[in-house]
Write a protein that binds this DNA or RNA. Structure first.
Lengths: 188, 188
DNA sequence: GTCTATAGCTTGATAGAC
DNA sequence: GTCTATCAAGCTATAGAC
């Protein structure tokens, strides 16, 4: 009997886990093979471009999920404050309440591949722009909106680094809780 | 003529660069050899425990430098505000005005070695405690001091991640500039 | 203390059977 | 679409000369 095709969603999830946890260089084909249940040759059948193509596919799928599930609510209808609160809830879920690393962070360490570097930069910028937009809608000045959006992103990334380094996820949850205020009020 | 001994300070600096830039798995002996000018066998003469010992030595030397040059001014004499300002200046220099990654961040990705994980956690905690102490001296309540210290650390780490991912170091410099206020004022 | 040379294992990648 | 078998190149680590 022929071996069943491994579901693509499942495959991408496991692939994402490995890159998120180990970074590009640490994501060896052995680890990927073990995590996905696919042997090396099967991985190359799915991704002829090898590891580099896998990393780009992971970035692309994460991008799509993030855009539709996290950023979409930001540009939807309703009050800016309510939209931001919705985002923070989904963000908490996305990052496992602070227990998961950010893929963009993990993949940006020691990366020499230009395409991947650029993809990371673009994903970061798209996220930032979405935050700026909602802050503007909330009534902040352009200068303040940009500053607060940067601060929001920095807070999230920094708190995830701290959680990974110390195991303490509370600061991450607090940062999320304060995001609505940060992105809507014009004074701290 | 016998080959001259490579200066230890120089060796540790180059070694630190490699681990900071590539993380543990990306710091191959080839890269280390090229960066330090020492061949594989010479590296094992200096570090019989191999790569793991190199990483621990790098963490130890970074710790010592950080404690004496960055954290020491925090516990010295003078007003808390002035001490914090001194720290921010040295922090900016330490991180190349935002162009360098944090060693603790780079080494915490995908690390399975317990000793290294623990070292990272302790370094993080020591840094945090120093920040809490100076915030307390500045008159903040214990609860606020801890919160602000965490926020300071998160800001620094997050801004460094952002700088690495996007190439934009301005947010990092702004975060540093706002540290004195963050750690001394009891309202934002 | 540094080097050349080498060992054995793991890596990313490919060929070809089913 | 998945697999086993295989490859060359890279990896960490060691032995021994100078």
């Amino acid at each position: 009997m022929p071996a069943k095709k491994i579901d693509e969603d499942y495959l991408m999830d496991r692939l994402t886990d490995v890159f998120r946890l180990h970074g590009y260089e640490g994501a060896s084909l052995s680890r990927i093979s073990q995590a996905t249940g696919l042997k090396r040759a099967s991985l190359y059948h799915r991704f002829p471009g090898g590891k580099e193509e896998m990393a780009e596919a992971v970035l692309k799928s994460a991008d799509e999920w993030f855009t539709s599930h996290i950023l979409a609510p930001l540009t939807g209808s309703g009050k800016p404050l309510a939209r931001i609160q919705k985002m923070t809830k989904r963000l908490s879920n996305f990052y496992g309440a602070g227990r998961h690393s950010c893929l963009l962070d993990s993949l940006s360490i020691g990366e020499e591949d230009v395409a991947i570097r650029q993809h990371i930069e673009e994903s970061f910028s798209a996220w930032l722009e979405a935050l700026v937009r909602v802050a503007l809608e909330a009534g902040l000045t352009p200068v303040m909106a940009k500053e607060r959006a940067e601060e929001a992103l920095i807070g999230i990334q920094g708190a995830l680094v701290m959680a990974r380094a110390t195991g303490n996820t509370k600061p991450f949850l607090r940062i999320l809780k304060n995001l609505p205020k940060l992105l809507t009020l014009d004074s701290k």
